[in-house]
Design a protein around this nucleic acid. Structure first.
Length: 586
RNA sequence: GCGCGCGUAGCUCAAUUGGAUAGAGCGUCGGUCUCCGAAGCCGAAGGUUGUGGGUUCAACCCCCGCCGCGCGCACCA
């Protein structure tokens, strides 16, 4: 167990002695500014506050019950009631030595592993994956990797958009205007063309819309021909998805699309109606406010000109078709019955916030017992903007296709690599460009706080200076270059930390696990990005100031080599957790 | 109109339970390669965290008002 965790447990035990009724789960030990110590706890101040106690007195009493002398060189009470811990150098060195022996890599497996379903990516059949999908896909993948690394059970499920009203138009287009050669050449482009064609016709001509609707009804009724065309469209789309996911290195345990839940939709609606949760209105069926919330907080109400009027979630359209709320309810039901997860996480655009708010409330009303046992979380994210501050588009104003974006990333990276490392063979430069290009796009997407919009900039994400994937991979490659130059042979296992840069780097390595846990708890991969950037910075600072291969003596050299190796391993593991590969040389 | 989200250095972004002197990169100015990868590193300048109140030992963070921007407001997802 890592030292900070040991301190934390001892502190919690001490608090329990002083305040037997206190909830010590909030008593945490966190890294802090070096001038105060290595770790800090501010938990006593809030505990004192709710009890109207003197925080410094509580700190003094707690400290009297706390023996961390095996771990800490110093414990102090500071400020309004902070506890500051300074780790013993020997403990620090031992922790690093254990890591060097491969006993750990600065993180512990979760004490209480959870089962988590993560729903992400969710592309639509017959449409090209576009730049927007990078967000859900990248964030979702980073989260599944993080949770898995910490020992949680993850079920990743790609909720593909393979059902819905668009298929009426697509079927009509397929039957009447399909270009056989085009579908062989580029299936998605042809499907897109068909959709746009019929969509435009429907806009102009109501009769065409009726034809499309008729095709949809036939599909929903199980018409053999329509079903077979629909399946072919899914198959063609799946090839596209697989190509993209394989490039991105993203894997799903399941890809149960919307259509998978069709058999249960009718039952969901009738059950909701029987329980009085849903009712008919204007020919449709919807879930309305149950009045349990204040109007302001009630997503089923909307204010129009000073009056609160109903804003229901529809579960059945007046034509008998079902809405996505219905599918989503059936999906929750299926996931709970199949996997019994502790949590279901939806990595979906922030704009769907209101939908999820309603969905979760409806589910709680529908299956209150089951709802109490599962945490439903919407992990929302903002939009990708162009440098003009408007949604990111191509020059001609079209949506940027994900495949094109990844191609361009690799091309741009290849130009840079060829410029900087012209001496490397072309095949190697191509491989470096692939890793750097894709890594740059992913990293740029994971770095900003996910809820905010961010501006897409090739120059920034591919820059070698600043908080970018190329910078991090460069730091990794530099370390690897040290080992190519180091003579192989038996090295001493002791780690001795003397220079301030060595200590700073070593202490930062110890915080890897805290960072991973923060990512898992708050579902925010950007914490890990920032941690790795700091790690690379602290490493470089160490590297500038502390000769490794040219160290004064063999013991220092071996100790520093060990620090280099541990840094490289954390960098590699960290980047891998973000879904980013590394190269040994660039 | 109503609701949700956002507003942090010239620009792009951070800030891990409400915690200690709000941090990076770009750009600007200056320093640093006979020395392990200079695609690097070090330093300087740059802030009333949109604004006005409030809660607190402590507020970028919580509460209220205002200003600005974005998004969403039954039978698409």
């Amino acid at each position: 167990m890592l030292p900070h965790k040991q301190i934390e447990l001892k502190l919690q035990a001490a608090v329990r002695e002083i305040l037997p009724d206190a909830d010590v789960s909030a008593v945490l030990v966190r890294p802090c500014e070096p001038k105060f110590g290595d770790y800090q706890s501010n938990a006593l101040m809030s505990l004192a506050k709710v009890r109207k106690m003197n925080p410094r007195q509580l700190a003094t009493d707690t400290l009297a019950k706390l023996d961390v002398s095996e771990l800490c060189a110093k414990v102090e009470i500071a400020g309004a009631g902070f506890l500051n811990f300074r780790l013993k150098n020997s403990v620090l060195a031992q922790t690093l030595e254990a890591a060097a022996r491969r006993e750990h890599l600065f993180f512990d497996q979760a004490a209480q592993p959870k089962t988590v379903v993560i729903d992400f990516s969710s592309p639509n059949v017959a449409k090209p994956m576009h730049v927007g999908h990078i967000r859900s896909t990248g964030i979702g993948d980073a989260l599944q990797r993080t949770l898995r690394l910490l020992g949680h059970t993850v079920i990743s499920d790609n909720h593909i958009g393979d059902w819905g009203t668009q298929f009426g138009k697509l079927l009509l287009g397929w039957k009447q205007s399909l270009d056989r050669a085009a579908i062989e050449r580029d299936a998605i482009a042809e499907l897109e063309r068909l959709y746009k064609l019929i969509n435009a016709e429907c806009d102009a001509n109501p009769a065409r819309l009726e034809e499309a609707k008729a095709e949809l009804v036939k599909l929903q009724a199980g018409d053999a021909e329509n079903i077979s065309i629909w399946k072919e469209m899914i198959r063609l789309s799946q090839i596209q998805f697989d190509t993209i996911y394989s490039r991105l290195g993203v894997k799903f345990d399941f890809a149960l699309g919307e259509s998978f839940y069709n058999p249960w939709l009718g039952d969901v609606v009738s059950d909701l109606m029987q329980r009085g949760i849903a009712r008919e209105s204007e020919g449709a069926v919807g879930v309305f406010s149950d009045g349990s919330l204040l109007p302001k907080e009630d997503p089923f109400l909307v204010n129009r000109d000073g009056e609160w009027i109903a804003d229901p979630a529809l579960v059945r359209k007046s034509d008998g078709g079902f809405n996505y709320t219905t599918t989503d309810l059936a999906t929750i039901d299926y996931r709970l019955k199949t996997w019994s997860p502790d949590e279901i996480v939806y990595v979906v655009d922030d704009r769907q916030g209101p939908h999820f708010k309603k969905l979760f409330l409806i589910f709680a009303r529908w299956q209150s017992a089951a709802a109490n046992k599962v945490k439903l979380v919407h992990v929302g994210f903002g939009k990708i903007m162009g440098d003009d501050g408007k949604p990111f588009k191509t020059r001609s104003g079209d949506t940027v296709k994900l495949g094109d974006l990844l191609d361009e990333a690799e091309e741009r990276a290849y130009k840079i690599v060829s410029e900087k490392s012209a001496e490397l063979p072309e095949s190697q430069r191509k491989e470096i460009a692939r890793v750097i290009g894709l890594g740059a796009v992913k990293y740029a997407d994971l770095l900003p706080n996910r809820q905010s919009d961010y501006i897409f900039s090739w120059d920034k994400m591919l820059a070698l200076q600043g908080n970018t994937a190329p910078y991090l991979v460069y730091a990794y490659a530099r370390i690897k270059s040290i080992f190519r130059k180091a003579e192989s042979g038996k090295r001493k296992a002791e780690i001795a930390l003397a220079a301030p840069e060595e200590l700073t780097l070593a202490k930062h390595l110890l915080n890897f696990g805290i960072t991973l846990e923060a990512v898992a708890d708050e579902l925010r991969p950007n914490y890990l990005c920032n941690y790795l950037f700091e790690l690379a910075g602290k490493f470089t600072s160490f590297y500038e100031n502390c000769p490794v291969l040219k160290a004064d003596d063999a013991a220092t050299r071996d100790s520093r080599l060990a620090l280099c190796d541990l840094t490289a391993r954390v960098l590699k593991q960290g980047l891998e957790t973000l879904g980013i590969e590394t190269v040994e040389q660039m």
